[in-house]
Design a protein around this nucleic acid. Structure first.
Lengths: 211, 211, 211, 211
DNA sequence: CATGAATGAGCTTTCATTCAT
DNA sequence: CATGAATGAAAGCTCATTCAT
């Protein structure tokens, strides 16, 4: 189920927990600028022990990213699984996603910093698709099927809502506010209603255009 | 006008051009993992000469990021300045933004990798706001004012459209396609029309419903 | 009888055999460059078990070297013990010595690599003297006593024949040939006949010259 | 002319001289156990400077070995070039060789420790052949041609004299004595006169055998 | 008795940076 | 002005060794 390259040795659960403490380090400094020494210090795991469980520094990061992606996938899938119309489920997923960004901010940012980096051990693009995009497409399609959503292009719609949530989520990380709920509502309003004054059916665009 | 820490010495235009070749390096590896040696090799500028013009490696990156932000600001402002309704100008800005991402992919990704990193020499958040968000807000507001756009919360709307464009732009970088125009159109459709079946005015949902 | 530092615990014979497999490793890489891990892998003895029987890595090597020296001593002494003239016994010893080098090539080389190294646990110089030089000197002296050998300086003669055998033995290791027997014969011919056109007795050169 | 892998950068002559001081270190400890730190300390060359001129530690050793082989080749060739009978030239070469061992003891031992090691950067076997064996064979052949030496198999004879000199040379290193000249003479006596009571022509061996 | 797990100590190597020319 | 040569500083990783079980 994990996206990560399998660790050579099974990581004791105690270590896995303490390792999570290193996520902020990697997020703040990036892979290269994060010193293994610092990871050891902040987690309390001796350097040599880290190398006993991981072949190298990058594998520690890969483990963290994979864990985060797995977490994210689980939480979003759970939110998507709650019964309801497509629209209701979409809203739940988006709120859950925003909450996840808020609680895993550092790692989430890191995920996007590493996204598109060629040499990454973790295929982040695939992980993001699995954890976020696929569930989004599923609920969007459900909305199309049950008539609760107006979606012409599921893929494009998934991009928009993902982008909206990602960007507003990062914004909140950089400039935290206590009006989080308001912001979330405002984002969702735009997503559901769009910016145009009138809805324009594509096939009837010519006619409407003149008015 | 530049966001960057000023280079200690005036950079000969020849060097500035060759330096742009290093953007991909920084984008692919990040600041720390990019070797000054590599920058020297790819630009053809001797290492010591780089240090003659820049106080340190990070200043080279800062220069590149600032240049890109300046470029982006100029192009988007130009697009926004073309006369028309707010809606028309918004569409132009979004298309221009997507084109910019496509042509400056590596640096753009880098911008977001560095975004939120504390120690950056360049205040990227501010630069992004200046280059992208402010113009977006301006045309959104113009659309509100001239009645061509349905926007309740300009700030939230800017987030959504920025996110939509950013995410779809990155997607195209990672999985290039020749249906770029189609994708762009699909994105804009969602942005303008929203996902909801019916538009619901918050305050007067009941009333509006009847119309 | 062993030259080695005694192993702290009695080594089960099973282990002793498997340990011999490590000789090549030490021979190829030397003491420092040979990893205990590799020794464990090639012998099938767990690392920690090696440390149960030996106080440290160098003691494993010492054990191997001592074993080899003991083997060599035994075989050469046996060859020397076969009745005959000094010359006959010398020839037998030399052939046995060459055979030993051929069959213990790696360890033999190692012996000379370690020879003269200060910190060795095994006094290799002494072991080599015991296993090789002393028997050589004994048969040379026997040849002097029974008149079957022409030897003015037993010590020097031992050096020459040792050198001849050592060098030609190593040569065969590095460039194996199926003309081994021929080579051996040729070496012995030089050893027994010398290179000079005429034999010149030092003390009675004039007299001998006439014969 | 050098056997070594070419140094990436031309080594300043000043450094080359100071580097020679490291030969003893390598000789005493071997490649692995010699710390680059120690090489830096003993030569006065900063560690990073060593790495500026050599790609790695082993290349420093390779340089030293190659230099020594080059030196040895030059000195032995010079000795062999002095006019005279083959026998006279051989004797000169052997004395020169012994002198060389005495003056370059550490490196010489190292040469034989590395001999036959697979991964060496320097092809020591070839270097030894070039520096020692080839000149030996040449003077031996000259002795055959001018009738001054009794040699049936030049190759075998070269092995014997090489072995004799090598072994006695190493002996003197390990147990220095002021009777060096005497020892040298004794060695040469054995080499020239052989150990056998009577010279035995190979073709007439059968007859003599019975006696 | 044997051994898997864990780690302290330290070394090679890298690289940003300086400076004499 | 520009740069080749040189180096101080630090980091990743390895590995011999220990010890609880």
């Amino acid at each position: 189920m994990s996206v990560s390259a399998a660790a050579v040795r099974t990581l004791p659960s105690g270590l896995a927990e303490r390792l999570a403490l290193a996520a902020d380090l990697f997020a703040e400094h990036g892979l290269e600028a994060t010193r293994v020494d610092e990871v050891a210090r902040i987690t309390g795991i001796p350097r040599a022990t880290l190398y006993y469980y991981f072949p190298g520094k990058e594998h520690i990061l890969a483990h963290l990213l994979s864990s985060t992606l797995d977490d994210m996938a689980e939480r979003i899938e759970t939110a998507a699984a709650v019964p309801g119309t497509g629209r209701e489920r979409l809203e739940r997923v988006l709120r859950e996603h925003l909450a996840f960004i808020a609680s895993h901010g550092a790692t989430y940012r890191l995920l996007f910093a590493e996204l598109g980096r060629a040499a990454s051990l973790v295929d982040i693009a695939r992980g993001v698709d699995r954890a976020i995009r696929a569930p989004l497409r599923a609920v969007l399609q459900a909305g199309v099927d049950d008539g609760s959503l107006h979606v012409l292009d599921v893929h494009a719609a998934a991009s928009v809502v993902h982008g909206a949530v990602l960007v507003s989520g990062l914004e909140q990380l950089l400039a935290p506010s206590d009006r989080t709920t308001d912001r979330t509502d405002a984002i969702l309003q735009v997503v559901f209603e769009g910016l145009g004054k009138e809805r324009v059916d594509r096939r009837a665009a010519e006619d409407d255009h003149g008015h």
